[in-house]
């Protein structure tokens, strides 16, 4: 029993890692631009396909492919900011519809280029860390955990130390006041979009060998990310990370001991409960609804 618990905890840690990467990006975008990016799951999908194309098909090293995934999807994010979210800055509902339109375009392009079939690519490493007979962690999963920890720590330091970080936080709190202090909203939004999209991309890239890659894989990811940002509090990066951990543990444990559908219901109920009791989330301060 103890071993089952330990194994489930390891699985949950892995899930928490990539969920946190996706959710933090979503929060960042929402915080700075006030836009609900429905295409965020498709950015994750795009990152996964970057690894399929570069690592599995073209034979480049896995980590190079993942890094390219991060940068490529980040650039796609910049493109979205410039063409969709900037012209629609005063129209949040319009931004939402535009992101839905973009989601359909990405899905469609992916299905034309890669087909709608599910791709299962070989892992980049076969190694498994064995802790005991029935407790183990594939190194491929460890990559995701370590990658998430490194990237999120780097982001945290970046936001705490740099002028950009200060500008990001200032524009998230009050765009007008930030503009008055000489912060360029466009520049800040571009950086937020690059980071936010890039994090979703790298999450997809790192998990690509562990999941099935297909054009519609973003759907379940975006639902999870929404739950996490609501539970964590819209606008709080730390909250998103903590909520990702909580959600991953609850979901993984309920899946292991009951079943997946019940786990989904529990996750959604958790979100509904937070919305009813404290709509600003467990750690939320920003109020940009």
């Amino acid at each position: 029993m103890l071993e089952l618990l330990a194994q489930t905890a390891l699985n949950a840690t892995y899930a928490a890692s990539y969920i946190a990467l996706v959710a933090v990006g979503l929060v960042l975008i929402f915080g700075v631009m006030g836009v609900v990016n429905f295409a965020h799951g498709e950015l994750y999908m795009l990152g996964a396909y970057a690894v399929v194309a570069l690592y599995a098909d073209a034979g480049f090293p896995f980590f190079l492919a993942a890094a390219v995934g991060l940068i490529f999807v980040g650039i796609v994010g910049i493109g979205m900011e410039r063409t969709l979210f900037r012209p629609l800055r005063d129209n949040p509902l319009g931004g939402l519809v535009a992101s839905i339109g973009f989601l359909l375009i990405l899905q469609s392009l992916a299905s034309v280029w890669f087909g709608v079939r599910m791709e299962h690519i070989p892992p980049s490493t076969q190694q498994i860390l064995r802790f005991s007979d029935s407790v183990s962690l594939p190194v491929q999963r460890l990559y995701v955990i370590v990658g998430a920890v490194i990237l999120l720590t780097a982001l945290w330091l970046f936001l705490k130390r740099s002028r950009f970080g200060w500008a990001l936080r200032a524009s998230a709190q009050d765009p007008e006041a930030a503009a008055l202090q000489g912060i360029s909203i466009n520049q800040t939004a571009r950086i937020a979009m690059f980071i936010g999209a890039g994090l979703a991309g790298v999450a997809g890239a790192l998990t690509a060998p562990l999941v099935r890659t297909f054009p519609y894989m973003g759907h379940s990811v975006i639902v999870t990310a929404f739950i996490v940002i609501i539970v964590g509090g819209v606008g709080s990066l730390e909250g998103a990370v903590l909520a990702a951990v909580i959600y991953a543990f609850v979901h993984t444990f309920v899946t292991t001991f009951f079943d997946g559908v019940i786990a989904d219901i529990v996750g959604l109920s958790l979100m509904l409960l937070v919305l009813i009791v404290k709509p600003t989330g467990m750690f939320g301060t920003a109020d940009r609804a």
Binding site: L84, P87, L88, N91, G94, V97, A98, I100, G101, F102, L103, L104, I105, Q107, S108, L109, S111, V112, V116
Partner: peptide, 20 residues
Amino acid sequence: DQLRPMFYGLILICSVLFLP
């Protein structure tokens, strides 16, 4: 057939951009 969602997406984007 496979590009249908893409056209649909483009129409959505154009309509919110140009016909808010």
